[in-house]
């Protein structure tokens, strides 16, 4: 996904001289072409995220469209107050790009897991939160961001350029993408769990449970309309995310459902159960340990449907 992001930005940079990419001393093997082609639109701010973020606001308030680029929590949690006060409060045109949302830096340990990012970013006024689910969505999101003025958090996974969609989907910030029309259960997901969620729907299909998948690439502003519509059309809703269950996509969806009348719909959210992940291993291994594989998710969803209906 990060390659798609950089490639798209590299394509757009000549037409948009206001684009300015700031990296926090990260992006080896990825950002070089951009840096060489557009030296006046590029800066390595060093390992100093507070300065990087405040400076990004200063550049944006001087007319630039800023992309800050780093990994996991570094561009958001380390300088959280700069994100809040300097960027969001001033509605500065800064896009914070974080590679490795979720636990895609698996064995590097919990310091490198972006597992509270959606929750924290979506609570900031003026902030838009995007977590594209595959390479196509990442490209669309990058393009959409250029046209969108104001603060944004773009959460990319480190996954290889996996594609779930077969072609570029119709993409609009704040408008979810529905895949399939299953009427038993809707699986709402975001970012790096899209592929696993689609597999989960396939597993369920084999058990004669029809599922639709909703790629909620924009967590804020949330597509409340599709959630309300879905609640009328299916028997149950489950959310699936590589994020803490507190405050993330599941919470955002539940907030809408709780205020939807009539509100009685079966709901379950799957994610990280309020823990630091201590398992060492691949992304797949961690998913397995957390019960976030298609096989385990589909079983849990079956049980949940059987018990609650």
């Amino acid at each position: 996904m990060r390659n798609v992001f950089i490639k798209t930005l590299t394509k757009l940079a000549p037409k948009h001289p206001e684009i300015f990419l700031i990296v926090g001393d990260l992006g080896y093997g990825v950002i070089e072409e951009f840096a060489q082609k557009f030296p006046r639109q590029f800066l390595n701010a060093g390992i100093a995220e507070q300065n990087m973020t405040g400076m990004a606001a200063g550049l944006a308030l001087s007319g630039k469209t800023i992309f800050t680029y780093s990994i996991a929590n570094f561009p958001i949690l380390r300088p959280l107050e700069q994100v809040r006060n300097d960027i969001c409060y001033h509605n500065a045109n800064v896009k914070i790009v974080s590679v490795g949302g979720g636990f895609f830096y698996h064995s590097l340990g919990s310091t490198h897991h972006g597992t509270e990012d959606i929750s924290i970013m979506r609570t900031l006024p003026n902030m838009t939160v995007l977590a594209p689910g595959d390479a196509y969505e990442a490209e669309c999101a990058t393009r959409a961001l250029i046209e969108h003025s104001g603060p944004c958090f773009l959460r990319l996974t480190k996954a290889p350029e996996s594609t779930v969609h077969t072609k570029k989907p119709a993409f609009k910030i704040g408008k979810a993408i529905q895949i399939g029309n299953g009427s038993d259960v809707a699986l709402i997901t975001t970012g790096g769990m899209l592929e696993e969620t689609i597999k989960t729907a396939e597993f369920l299909k084999r058990q004669k449970i029809s599922a639709r998948v909703i790629s909620m690439h924009t967590v804020k502003p949330l597509d409340a309309a599709i959630i309300k519509k879905t609640a009328r059309e299916v028997k149950a809703i489950a959310t699936i995310e590589d994020h803490q269950i507190t405050g993330g996509l599941g919470s955002a969806v539940a907030e809408v459902l709780a205020e939807t009348s009539p509100s009685a719909i079966l709901f379950k959210h799957f994610g990280i159960p309020d823990i630091f992940i201590k398992h060492i291993g691949s992304v797949e291994y961690i998913k397995e340990k957390l019960g976030l594989t298609a096989e385990k998710l589909s079983k849990k969803i079956q049980t949940f449907l059987a018990h609650d209906i």
Binding site: L43, M52, G58, L61, Q82, D86
Partner: peptide, 9 residues
């Protein structure tokens, strides 16, 4: 930091 960004701009 914000001032530095403006100066850089």
């Amino acid at each position: 930091p914000v001032a530095a960004g403006m100066a850089l701009a």
